[in-house]
Amino acid sequence: MKHSTTRWARIVALLAAVSIVASCGLLPRLGPNKREIYAGSVQREGDAFIVSINDRVTRTTAVVPALGFSEEFKNAGSLGSDTIRAGDTLGLTVWENVDDPLLGAGAGTAGGSGGPATLEEVQVDGSGFIFIPYAGRIKAAGNTPEGIRQIITAKLEDQTPDPQVQVRRIAGDGSTVSLIGSVGGQGVYAIERPTRTLTAMLARAGGITIVPEIAQVTVLRGDQTGKIWFQDLYKHPEVDIALRGGDRILVEEDTRAFTALGATGSQARITFESQSLSAVEAIAQVGGLLSIGADPTGVFVFRNEPAEIANQVLGRTDLQGAQRMVYVLNLTEPNGLFMARDFVIRDQDTLYVTEAPFTQWNKLIAAFTGSLGAVGTLTSTTDGLLGLASGG
């Protein structure tokens, strides 16, 4: 009888201890519950605004980063393949209708008496000039091969009868762009007739090597920078800008990401897989809600919202600076999934799903039964040892 009374006393003490643990919130869990989150609201002297998601909220917060080129980028005309720039290389051939030409054998790399004289790789200097024997120093930058041909012809006519001049433009240092990042072949490429635009140059470099949906293309031109989604280059041909010598082109993945915590299939930092990402897509991307532990009425999105959007969401005009906002989704409502489909997740958002109330109860029961079993085992062992001792 004494042993039985002692055993029940231990059980009662264990129940009291478990009750204390449960009331103090010391049982293991994934994070705060709904009650604790709501307790941190501004309405309850906290520092976050808690807002239930509806159609008006989804429209107000549907902000997707707008990427595009400035008008200065878009209005820059395509460089003609004949436009000469400093750093370009030219090739010239001159025919003279005389037996003893000015530019004969020894003046060029080829030719002779009565034959053509060829001057290959004539470099346009940094000031935009070239030098031609008997024609002198000629301004080439900003001109065309035809314009240069006429200038050289006019200068040679005073010294040789009826000269015939041909001028060819060869791609040079003054008409190149550099491509780096996630492209098939990084390097420096000349702007030639087939590669005057951004898409053509990307194709020349072997295309992109990342998923098109999250590829961003940045163009640096002097002190200007423009960025655009790769897919928009093909959806909107008007943004396929003309290139300029010295442009630097970078192709990289979208760096936006959100964090998933709580009763979801995966707790991690997740990168975006498309230009826009809805709440339901974000939930699916992390493996959905835990079927045995998630509370579908407690899906929260934590965000630092710019003041202009926060004021619109809350119907106010007095808020200044970024505001802590907690958006709430209830997937059990008739239109809950529609709200989740329309609500846009943004960069640096935290998606948090609370545990269902019965999950904590199950943990309490598990703690109770596990501890009770341990106590029972210990009691049986103790009783056995006492029995052996008394029999001995």
Rank of each mutant, 00 (worst) to 15 (best):
E273H: 03
R303N: 08
L337F: 15
G315C: 03
D295I: 11
D349W: 05
L289G: 10
S291H: 04
L351T: 12
T332W: 00
N335M: 11
Q267L: 08
F358R: 06
A366S: 15
V280D: 12
L364A: 15
E308F: 14
A366H: 09
G336W: 05
A294V: 12
L277E: 00
S266E: 14
T297D: 10
T354S: 14
A294C: 11
K363L: 09
W361R: 10
E305A: 08
R316P: 03
A282L: 06
S278I: 00
N311P: 02
V286H: 05
T359K: 07
N362W: 06
Q320D: 04
P296V: 12
G288M: 01
P306H: 01
Y352K: 10
V301S: 05
T359G: 05
F302N: 01
L351K: 04
D318H: 01
V280H: 10
T264Y: 08
R303F: 03
W361D: 06
S278A: 00
I345F: 13
N362V: 10
E308H: 09
Q275C: 08
L364T: 15
L351I: 15
V313Q: 07
P357Q: 03
E333I: 09
A284S: 14
P334I: 07
E355S: 11
V280L: 13
I270G: 04
S291C: 07
N362A: 03
L351N: 11
A284Q: 13
E333C: 00
G298P: 02
T264M: 13
E308K: 06
S274E: 07
P306W: 05
A307D: 10
N304F: 09
E305S: 11
I345R: 10
L261E: 10
V301L: 13
N304A: 05
Q275L: 03
R341V: 07
V299M: 11
G321P: 00
Q348V: 01
T271I: 00
G287I: 09
Q348D: 01
L337D: 05
L337H: 07
D349I: 02
A294R: 07
N330H: 13
L351M: 14
T350A: 02
V301G: 01
Q275I: 02
Q267E: 14
R346E: 07
E273M: 07
E308T: 12
V326G: 04
A294S: 14
R303Y: 03
A263K: 04
L290H: 10
L351S: 12
T332C: 04
E308Y: 12
Q275N: 06
G293C: 01
